[in-house]
Design a protein around this nucleic acid. Structure first.
Length: 663
RNA sequence: GCCAUCCUAGCUCAGCUGAUAGAGCAUUCGAUUCGUAAUCGAAAGGUCGUGGGUUUGAAUCCCAUGGAUGGCUCCA
């Protein structure tokens, strides 16, 4: 009998081969062997029933346990296959596409793309889930077999699965593994590993049915995608379900209605936002913060029209590269020769301002900023609340700089971004450096040297500020590399916001120049930069980030004055008036309601402070302060309260915690 | 744009297999004057997204169309 040396953690044993992985584990740690879903042998993920042959080298073996991330991935992957098995059982003749585990997407745990003999509807999901549970309870083993390419192709030919065949043709060189589940029509071509049998899949749920294009290509046929999720234990699944409900409560569309912030009405057009007074108030505060910072950082403010002659968009290249996203041309009554188009971007206008004068190297950088409202004809299916709309305002700026200024200007943009996002309490800001992919690809405009210089400038700016970033190949714009800004919100979701892009294409197209120190004409480089990206989207992100409970400086109503009885109404009005005169946003609730109801109303509206006023306060000329989260803070003089409020407003404090105010 | 689902009062939602539209909240009016998350009563409010069709009869079944939602593609 041949032998095998195996290492498990610190210990090493000699075992007789051949032997299955699970048997090996049993020799070291029976508990781990029992719990294991799969294993890693010399770092490679394998099934537990894989037979190990004798070998000269020492094999290191390690169980993959359900608690680990890899374990969860095995569970989700195996559950996706259980889903496929159930579908095949219920709908013979179904073609399978791909069915991966999803580990990054908080919404879903896995999916499987299929083409069933008839279109499935969501009403089919319960039956499929039921079948999955049935198969799960039968502890059906997942079997793996290594098969020659020709044979795999035969199998899927027989099963009439051309999509799988296509995949195999592409991915398999000579042989590959296929999986099947005993007593099930399921066969799939897959790397694995899987759980040893379906009994290990204890907590799963099907979630959604949607369309999905084969290989993600809109030109190819549309399949149906079934989404689900799976966890190691029912408790984890329950916790996930609960968290999902919490996230739903933060939905900016729901809060937008409840807090009367904005609306989108069919009669006015899809993807077009009506900002209600309260939403508009918040937006104004957001813009004020930006304006203060812009001014400090040497930006100029400009205003430009929403529409421009079609010729302009031809020069800028938008007609050629961006027409699909633009509203169709329009013209003036009686003049058929001149066409106009709504602007999808602000850059050409800012270029017009740059070009209106001769520029010297001493004039650069020119920094033009504008809250520029743009219109894009997004496909109707992509619209989503404030996050994806057809008319939105970019906190836009264009910097016209000399090549030697790029690094510093970009670095200042980074500082700017960090400063602003900190104010909103986004502790995690992610930067991604997107560079071109294949340099040979002719979609990228400009010389190699320009691309390399640009990338170096961006990377240096990031390094100079000590910012860690991720470098992403092939994500650059066709005219230049960029830095994308993403933030993580209060419940861990990532949002794509602004971007800093280098561009030498537009300066070329518009023939921009400046007079250099050497008396020669030079071409400036443009930096497009936006921090929020879209005010609408960022506002939506903020609503969800704060769950509608805006910090004092942003809150549309900062203080509600609540008289306990009608007798106090006059005093309440005088307190409100005084606070208003100081610039605070105050409402007074003089409804004939009990104080509990008034408080409840203010709480639901997420007003930061309530001033509860009764006979006692009137007599002593004081206010009883109730903070939204902390509750009753006790009585204080109006002056004390004013001072507290003033500090919260001026410092743009994130919490209404009165402690940092001292004394 | 593509796939699935949905559209009933200002909002959230009932209304099963076809038979004269319901509730809660909000609104208005009246009563109540109250000490930290919902006082009581009454009234008003809808040609059931829109347009066709089937039927003695349609919110309900069928077709078309608009919009929304979840995805795909795309993207700030």
């Amino acid at each position: 009998m041949s032998e095998l040396n195996v290492k498990f953690g610190e210990s090493q044993k000699q075992l007789s081969a051949p032997i299955s992985v699970v048997e090996v584990l049993k020799n070291f740690d029976r508990d781990a062997a029992k719990k294991a879903l799969a294993a890693r042998v010399n770092g490679e993920e394998v099934d537990l029933n894989k037979q190990l042959e004798s070998s000269d080298e020492v094999l290191s073996v390690e169980p993959i346990l359900p608690e680990s991330r890899d374990g969860l991935e095995v569970i989700r992957h195996s559950t996706a296959h259980l889903l496929a098995a159930a579908v095949l059982d219920l709908f013979p003749g179904t073609q399978l596409g791909v069915g991966p585990a999803l580990m990054e997407d908080p919404r879903y745990g896995f999916y499987y793309d299929i083409i069933a003999p008839r279109q499935l509807t969501i009403e089919d999901l319960p039956a499929i889930e039921k079948k999955m549970r049935e198969l799960q309870k039968r502890n059906l083993p997942y079997r793996r077999e290594n098969v020659q390419k020709a044979q795999i192709l035969d199998i899927f030919h027989e099963r009439n699965e051309p999509l799988k065949k296509e995949l195999i043709e592409e991915k398999v060189v000579d042989s590959a593994s296929i999986y099947y589940i005993d007593n099930s029509p399921f066969i799939d071509f897959c790397l694995g590993p899987h759980v040893p049998h379906t009994g290990k899949l204890k907590a799963f749920k099907l979630l959604a049915l949607s369309g999905a294009y084969w290989k993600g290509d809109a030109e190819k046929q549309q399949m149906q995608r079934i989404y689900g999720t799976a966890f190691a234990t029912q408790e984890e699944l329950d916790a996930w379900t609960k968290q999902r409900e919490e996230a739903e409560k933060r939905d900016h569309r729901r809060l937008g209605r409840e807090l009367d912030l904005f609306s989108i009405q069919d009669d006015y057009g899809q993807g077009l936002i009506l900002w209600h007074p309260k939403g508009a108030m918040i937006r104004m505060e957001m813009e004020n913060l930006l304006k203060e910072e812009l001014q400090k950082r040497g930006y100029s403010f400009v205003f430009t029209p929403h529409i421009a002659k079609r010729e302009l968009w031809k020069i800028s290249g938008h007609e050629e590269n961006y027409a699909d996203s633009m509203f169709a041309p329009t013209r003036v009554e009686g003049d058929d020769d001149t066409e106009f188009r709504l602007k999808p971007m602000n850059c050409p206008f800012h270029i017009g301002i740059y070009k209106s004068n001769q520029r010297s190297y001493r004039d650069l950088p020119q920094r033009y900023s504008e809250m520029g409202t743009v219109y894009r004809a997004e496909l109707s299916g992509t619209l989503h609340g404030l996050m994806r709309v057809r008319g939105f305002t970019v906190d836009d700026a264009h910097l016209f700089v000399r090549p030697d200024q790029v690094r510093e200007e970009v670095a200042d943009c980074l500082d700017f971004a960090i400063k602003v996002f900190e104010t909103y309490g986004f502790e995690k800001v992610k930067f991604e450096l997107s560079v071109r992919g294949d340099a040979e690809n002719k979609i990228y405009l400009g010389a190699d040297e320009e691309w390399e210089n640009a990338e170096t400038s961006l990377a240096n700016a990031l390094k100079e500020r000590g910012i860690s970033y991720e470098r992403i190949e092939g994500e650059a714009a066709f005219y230049g590399p960029k830095i994308d800004i993403k933030v993580e919100d209060a419940i861990g979701r990532i949002w794509q916001l602004g971007t800093i892009q280098l561009d030498w294409n537009l300066p070329e197209r518009f023939d921009l120049e400046y007079m250099g120190e050497d008396g020669q004409k030079h071409r400036p480089i443009m930096v497009h930069r936006a921090l929020f990206g879209s005010i609408e989207r960022f506002f939506g992100v903020l609503v969800e980030h704060f769950a509608g409970a805006f910090p004092f400086w942003l809150a549309p109503v900062q203080i509600t004055v609540l008289p306990i009885t009608d007798r106090i109404n006059d005093y309440a009005e005088s307190v409100a008036k005084e606070l208003k005169s100081l610039g605070f946003r105050v409402e007074t609730d003089v409804r004939s309601e009990k104080i509990g109801a008034k408080i409840r109303h203010a709480q639901l509206q997420k007003v930061p402070f309530m001033l509860v006023l009764g006979d006692k306060e009137l007599e002593e000329n004081k206010v009883a302060v109730r903070e939204k989260v902390k509750g009753d803070l006790g009585t204080m003089s109006l002056d004390e309260f004013k001072e507290m409020a003033r500090k919260l407003k001026e410092t743009r404090a994130l919490s209404n915690d009165p402690k940092p105010l001292g004394n």
